[in-house]
Computed example of a mutant assay.
Amino acid sequence: MDDEVRDRIMPGCLIGTAAASCFFDLVDGERGSRRYQYNSKQNEFGYFYESWQDRWVVFDNRMGALFVTTCKTVDEATDYLIDGEELFAP
Protein backbone atom coordinates (compact mmCIF):
# COMPACT_ATOMS: atom_id res chain seq x y z
CA MET A 1 0.00 0.00 0.00
CA ASP A 2 1.51 3.32 -0.99
CA ASP A 3 1.67 6.28 1.41
CA GLU A 4 -1.06 8.26 -0.34
CA VAL A 5 -3.58 5.41 -0.10
CA ARG A 6 -2.58 4.71 3.52
CA ASP A 7 -3.04 8.37 4.47
CA ARG A 8 -6.50 8.44 2.90
CA ILE A 9 -7.65 5.18 4.52
CA MET A 10 -5.96 5.66 7.92
CA PRO A 11 -5.65 9.36 8.76
CA GLY A 12 -3.44 9.87 11.80
CA CYS A 13 -1.62 6.54 11.38
CA LEU A 14 1.97 6.80 12.57
CA ILE A 15 4.77 5.07 10.69
CA GLY A 16 8.52 4.69 11.00
CA THR A 17 10.35 6.63 13.70
CA ALA A 18 7.23 8.54 14.81
CA ALA A 19 5.38 5.24 15.33
CA ALA A 20 8.28 3.68 17.24
CA SER A 21 8.58 6.73 19.51
CA CYS A 22 4.85 6.76 20.26
CA PHE A 23 4.80 2.99 20.85
CA PHE A 24 7.65 3.10 23.36
CA ASP A 25 6.04 6.05 25.16
CA LEU A 26 2.81 4.07 25.47
CA VAL A 27 4.58 0.96 26.75
CA ASP A 28 6.88 2.87 29.09
CA GLY A 29 4.08 4.94 30.61
CA GLU A 30 1.41 2.27 30.75
CA ARG A 31 -0.06 1.97 34.30
CA GLY A 32 2.59 4.30 35.75
CA SER A 33 5.29 1.65 35.39
CA ARG A 34 8.03 4.30 35.32
CA ARG A 35 6.70 6.50 38.14
CA TYR A 36 4.79 8.88 35.90
CA GLN A 37 1.42 8.88 34.24
CA TYR A 38 1.59 8.89 30.45
CA ASN A 39 -1.17 11.13 29.14
CA SER A 40 -2.42 8.86 26.39
CA LYS A 41 -4.76 10.43 23.89
CA GLN A 42 -6.24 6.97 23.23
CA ASN A 43 -5.98 7.51 19.49
CA GLU A 44 -2.42 6.45 18.82
CA PHE A 45 -1.89 3.72 16.27
CA GLY A 46 0.68 2.76 13.67
CA TYR A 47 3.44 0.43 12.64
CA PHE A 48 7.21 0.40 12.28
CA TYR A 49 9.93 -1.99 11.15
CA GLU A 50 11.94 -3.71 13.87
CA SER A 51 15.24 -4.84 12.35
CA TRP A 52 16.23 -7.09 15.28
CA GLN A 53 13.14 -9.23 14.70
CA ASP A 54 12.98 -8.62 10.95
CA ARG A 55 9.25 -7.92 11.41
CA TRP A 56 6.77 -5.06 11.51
CA VAL A 57 5.47 -4.04 14.95
CA VAL A 58 1.81 -3.00 14.85
CA PHE A 59 0.12 -1.19 17.73
CA ASP A 60 -3.33 0.28 18.25
CA ASN A 61 -4.45 2.32 21.24
CA ARG A 62 -7.60 3.83 19.67
CA MET A 63 -9.85 1.90 22.04
CA GLY A 64 -7.79 2.80 25.11
CA ALA A 65 -6.41 -0.73 25.45
CA LEU A 66 -3.00 -1.12 23.83
CA PHE A 67 -3.04 -3.87 21.18
CA VAL A 68 0.37 -5.04 19.88
CA THR A 69 1.36 -7.67 17.35
CA THR A 70 4.08 -8.32 14.77
CA CYS A 71 3.72 -9.02 11.06
CA LYS A 72 5.94 -10.19 8.23
CA THR A 73 4.79 -7.57 5.70
CA VAL A 74 3.63 -3.97 5.74
CA ASP A 75 0.38 -4.99 4.02
CA GLU A 76 -0.33 -7.46 6.80
CA ALA A 77 0.37 -4.68 9.32
CA THR A 78 -2.12 -2.30 7.71
CA ASP A 79 -4.74 -5.06 7.55
CA TYR A 80 -4.58 -5.30 11.36
CA LEU A 81 -5.32 -1.58 11.63
CA ILE A 82 -8.26 -1.48 9.21
CA ASP A 83 -11.62 -3.16 9.45
CA GLY A 84 -14.93 -2.29 7.83
CA GLU A 85 -15.37 0.67 10.17
CA GLU A 86 -11.71 1.77 9.92
CA LEU A 87 -11.44 1.18 13.66
CA PHE A 88 -9.48 -1.17 15.89
CA ALA A 89 -9.27 -4.59 14.30
CA PRO A 90 -9.05 -7.42 16.88
Score class of each variant (00 low, 15 high):
residue 84 G to F: 02
residue 42 Q to I: 00
residue 20 A to V: 01
residue 49 Y to S: 03
residue 64 G to C: 10
residue 79 D to W: 06
residue 10 M to N: 01
residue 19 A to K: 00
residue 29 G to I: 02
residue 46 G to H: 00
residue 89 A to Y: 08
residue 49 Y to A: 03
residue 78 T to I: 13
residue 71 C to Q: 12
residue 38 Y to I: 03
residue 83 D to M: 03
residue 38 Y to V: 04
residue 7 D to E: 12
residue 85 E to R: 13
residue 41 K to Y: 05
residue 76 E to C: 03
residue 70 T to R: 09
residue 2 D to F: 09
residue 24 F to L: 11
residue 46 G to Y: 02
residue 20 A to E: 14
residue 58 V to C: 07
residue 59 F to W: 05
residue 69 T to A: 09
residue 90 P to M: 06
residue 18 A to N: 14
residue 2 D to M: 02
residue 84 G to L: 07
residue 10 M to E: 08
residue 38 Y to C: 10
residue 81 L to K: 05
residue 4 E to T: 04
residue 7 D to A: 14
residue 5 V to W: 00
residue 75 D to L: 08
residue 37 Q to H: 10
residue 86 E to S: 11
residue 18 A to L: 12
residue 1 M to G: 12
residue 55 R to P: 01
residue 46 G to N: 03
residue 79 D to F: 06
residue 50 E to N: 14
residue 25 D to N: 15
residue 47 Y to Q: 02
residue 1 M to D: 05
residue 60 D to K: 07
residue 86 E to I: 05
residue 18 A to T: 08
residue 46 G to K: 02
residue 13 C to Y: 07
residue 7 D to S: 14
residue 3 D to S: 08
residue 37 Q to K: 12
residue 50 E to W: 11
residue 76 E to W: 02
residue 1 M to E: 04
residue 4 E to K: 05
residue 11 P to F: 01
residue 14 L to S: 07
residue 51 S to G: 08
residue 71 C to T: 14
residue 17 T to D: 14
residue 46 G to E: 02
residue 72 K to A: 09
residue 32 G to S: 04
residue 23 F to M: 10
residue 24 F to H: 11
residue 54 D to T: 09
residue 21 S to A: 13
residue 64 G to L: 07
residue 77 A to C: 05
residue 6 R to D: 00
residue 66 L to P: 08
residue 69 T to Q: 06
residue 29 G to V: 02
residue 19 A to T: 03
residue 4 E to Q: 10
residue 9 I to Q: 04
residue 69 T to Y: 01
residue 4 E to N: 10
residue 32 G to M: 09
residue 63 M to T: 15
residue 90 P to R: 08
residue 66 L to A: 09
residue 29 G to M: 06
residue 10 M to L: 15
residue 77 A to W: 01
residue 81 L to T: 11
residue 69 T to G: 08
residue 81 L to A: 08
residue 6 R to Q: 00
residue 30 E to H: 15
residue 72 K to W: 04
residue 42 Q to A: 13
residue 83 D to V: 04
residue 45 F to P: 02
residue 62 R to M: 06
residue 2 D to I: 04
residue 79 D to S: 14
residue 30 E to I: 13
residue 18 A to C: 09
residue 26 L to I: 11
residue 7 D to N: 06
residue 76 E to N: 10
residue 15 I to Q: 12
residue 34 R to V: 06
residue 22 C to W: 00
residue 33 S to P: 00
residue 10 M to G: 01
residue 40 S to D: 14
residue 89 A to W: 03
residue 60 D to Y: 09
residue 79 D to R: 12
residue 78 T to Y: 14
residue 67 F to W: 12
residue 13 C to R: 02
residue 41 K to P: 01
residue 45 F to I: 01
residue 37 Q to R: 11
residue 20 A to M: 13
residue 31 R to A: 12
residue 13 C to P: 00
residue 56 W to S: 02
residue 48 F to P: 00
residue 76 E to R: 12
